[in-house]
């Protein structure tokens, strides 16, 4: 009599049965992914990487490149929770003895995975999209709006003014850390800076002559499928 309770288990083989070489082709068709082919797995990049060193050893740029080159999709997917954690410090690219643009290649791998539906939308991607939307719309970003807009996107109930529909700082829900982060400098800030920042929050700084260019930009981004 079996008392283990898991006698029904069937273990599926771990064996890699094939490569998906189209995946690598797709990564390398992107301008920033081209240099992936040059990697010889020396691991100079990984050893330099702060994310690998201080966050999670599963974040391994060299390894991701190997997996992508052979198209071992399931292995890449297993690391989906760490793959987006790059801080873009560019030590990898800076040091690579083979001239691989490692940071760019990793982003190209992520883009390809996203395009093929192999990875769920990851946290940094959400912010990247939010940020890019702001750039596309106004030509420039505004720190306050970016901050409170993002807070709102995170699910906090931010109070907005009735006319311009801009978030009003500190009304409604604000995380405690943000209050402290913002209040400290505000307390000691020159009044004219305060006014300027308030103005920027109400009236988003814009690039002039932007509309025509914006349309071209939107077209390009749409072609690349970046914001979908």
């Amino acid at each position: 009599m079996d008392v283990s309770g898991d006698w029904n288990l069937i273990i599926l083989p771990r064996v890699i049965n094939d490569y998906d070489l189209d995946f690598a082709k797709e990564v390398m068709s992107l301008p920033e992914g081209k240099t992936m082919i040059q990697c010889y797995q020396c691991s100079y990049c990984t050893a330099s990487c702060p994310v690998h060193n201080y966050w999670d050893e599963r974040y391994n740029s060299r390894h991701f490149i190997h997996l992508a080159r052979l198209g071992l999709i399931d292995e890449l997917q297993k690391r989906a929770d760490v793959m987006w954690r790059c801080v873009s410090c560019h030590k990898c690219t800076h040091r690579c003895p083979k001239g691989v643009l490692v940071e760019e290649v990793l982003k190209a791998i992520l883009k390809t995975m996203a395009k093929k539906g192999l990875i769920d939308e990851y946290p940094s991607k959400k912010f990247d999209k939010f940020f890019t939307e702001s750039v596309l719309e106004y030509g420039r970003i505004e720190d306050g709006e970016l901050l409170f807009g993002w807070i709102e996107k995170q699910g906090y109930n931010v109070v907005k003014d009735p006319i311009l529909k801009k978030p009003i700082p500190f009304l409604g829900e604000t995380p405690e850390w943000l209050k402290q982060l913002v209040m400290k400098p505000i307390k000691s800030m020159n009044i004219s800076f305060l006014v300027l920042n308030a103005k920027h929050m109400l009236f988003h700084p814009r690039t002039k002559n932007w509309n025509k260019f914006k349309q071209v930009l939107r077209k390009v981004v749409q072609e690349e499928g970046g914001l979908t």
Binding site: D6, W7, L9, I10, I11, L12, P13
Partner: peptide, 12 residues
Amino acid sequence: EREFTRSMAIQR
């Protein structure tokens, strides 16, 4: 580890 035995026999 009978799970291993049966998995190997069937799958492999």
